[in-house]
């Protein structure tokens, strides 16, 4: 199994470290030729969604990844990665892959002073969740499964082969990455 990590900006190395610890091969996607190669899963990391969206297009990565996501490549988006996948961003004309049937609100908890830690269950394990200028998933479509909530807000969800967390598991735990790997395996 080989996982591609979008590495145009943000906290991509943290994902690599978790995958390394799980013995999963990974590589960085910085240009079109990386995106064109064969891989079994894609990670869209935390960072700035505006920067990633722009670089995806200008470095000519966007169409290749969009096609792969649309044809069922398993993908895992954290924080900004969720914004890239969502069909709609509330109060904004931001659009990227538009592949996950959810609506998100950006910077929904405010500026950095609104960033916070929580402990909640994900897939029967209690994990630490870091929310950094995080978005909120404000609406979900019919086929979307809610995987975790904090104070009523949806913080983890799955739309078919797309896994999304508004927090950053890559900073604290390998539990969500393990779930993603199982998802790739089709379990």
């Amino acid at each position: 199994m080989k996982i591609g990590i979008l590495a145009v900006q943000g906290a991509f190395i943290e994902h690599k470290h978790i995958l390394d610890s799980l013995g999963i091969e990974s590589f960085e996607i910085r240009q079109k030729k990386d995106a064109m190669s064969d891989f079994d899963g894609l990670i869209l990391p935390g960072g700035e969604s505006t920067v990633m969206n722009k670089l995806l297009r200008e470095l000519d990565i966007f169409e290749t990844l969009k096609k792969k996501i649309n044809s069922g490549l398993p993908v895992f988006g954290t924080c900004a990665g969720v914004i890239l996948l969502s069909k709609k961003v509330k109060n904004d004309n931001f659009l990227c892959f538009e592949s996950a049937d959810i609506e998100v609100e950006r910077n929904a908890y405010g500026r950095q002073l609104g960033s916070f830690l929580a402990k909640e269950e994900f897939n029967d394990s209690e994990i630490k969740m870091s929310f950094i200028r995080a978005p909120k998933i404000t609406k979900t479509g019919k086929g979307v499964e809610v995987l975790a909530r904090v104070n009523g807000d949806i913080v983890a969800a799955r739309d078919k082969k797309q896994l999304m967390t508004t927090f950053h598991p890559e900073l604290n735990t390998d539990i969500v990455h393990k779930y993603f790997i199982e998802m790739i395996k089709g379990i």
Binding site: G10, E48, Q112, R133
Partner: peptide, 18 residues
């Protein structure tokens, strides 16, 4: 301590950027 951790985390999200 939590606040300091979250603040270090924000810097992590800025990495690879200008």
């Amino acid at each position: 301590k939590e606040r300091h951790e979250l603040n270090k985390n924000l810097a992590q999200m800025l990495k690879g950027g200008v």
